[in-house]
């Protein structure tokens, strides 16, 4: 099954707070297509529309105009993608009154994964993320890194076709984040998913992605292909070179955003 994503002319506008005030356009006719099994990182300054993009794609917000389709099929009337979707938030968002394992069960119960396979799936991902010993722990008993790994288990357990990740490693210490990035690539290479990953970190984007998309003012500023063969070495100098190019674009986008903000303030 094709799990690619196609976005055409996506516009999202927030109305002005007061009467007569001009609305704020967060996404400005965005066109982007993501291939089946492609790993795309979206990079951009705050307010460039990154999170809005994920909200519209995931169906959390279906008040937008433009066309979004998954594997050639348009989103349903309720705004939900016609494919299975996993989601990783910036914070773990675990249910604090459920143990690690029950948190995973919670999403399995709302999925179409047959109950007969739950045990096998959970064993697999708990082992893979090193959380085997913490299955019966409550979220408050886990460290930040472990909680985020658990939320990765949760997202993978439903065997999603598409994985949305909203700065999932930004709250972790660098060492943990680095290990999670390597693990994520490993899992992705083995299971095959289309991944849309939002980040503020240009090296993270370069290391992970097939393609880095830099957003500015609600549209694409630059697309950079990362033609480094996989499996990748985290300290590969070729990645550093590409990451510099990504960084330069990111900084330019941030400067554009700042200039636009000042202009708007001036009237």
């Amino acid at each position: 099954m094709d799990k690619g994503i196609s976005i055409k002319g996506l516009v999202k506008e927030y109305p002005g707070h007061r009467k007569g005030e001009r609305g704020h356009r967060v996404l400005n006719g965005l066109d982007l297509s993501i291939a089946d099994n492609e790993f795309v990182c979206i990079l951009g300054p705050s307010g460039c529309g990154k999170s809005t993009l994920l909200n519209t794609l995931s169906g959390l917000d279906n008040d937008y105009s433009g066309e979004v389709s998954f594997g050639g099929r348009p989103v349903g009337r309720n705004g939900k993608p016609p494919v299975k979707m996993g989601y990783l938030f910036q914070d773990p968002r675990l249910l604090p009154w459920l143990t690690a394992e029950r948190n995973v069960d919670f999403v399995l119960e709302n999925s179409d994964v047959p109950k007969a396979r739950w045990a096998e799936i959970k064993n697999h991902y708990f082992a893979l993320t090193g959380l085997e010993a913490f299955r019966h722990h409550y979220p408050h008993e886990l460290s930040g890194g472990m909680a985020q790994r658990l939320s990765l288990v949760r997202a993978l357990a439903i065997e999603p076709d598409v994985l949305f990740m909203d700065e999932p490693f930004s709250g972790l210490d660098e060492l943990t984040a680095r290990r999670m990035r390597v693990d994520l690539l490993d899992i992705w290479s083995r299971t095959g998913k289309t991944i849309l990953f939002i980040t503020h970190n240009s090296y993270e984007a370069t290391f992970l992605a097939d393609r880095v998309v830099v957003l500015s003012q609600g549209n694409i500023r630059e697309e950079i292909r990362v033609e480094v063969p996989r499996p990748r070495d985290y300290d590969d100098p070729a990645l550093f070179d590409i990451s510099k190019q990504v960084s330069a674009n990111f900084i330019a986008a941030a400067e554009e955003a700042e200039r636009a903000r000042l202009e708007q303030q001036a009237g």
């Binding site: 995931s58 169906g59 959390l60 939900k80 979707m85 989601y87 938030f89 968002r93 919670f106 999403v107 709302n110 999925s111 949760r154 439903i158 949305f164």
Partner: peptide
Amino acid sequence: KMAKVFNA
């Protein structure tokens, strides 16, 4: 939001 994206 979490529950919603996971189809609850």
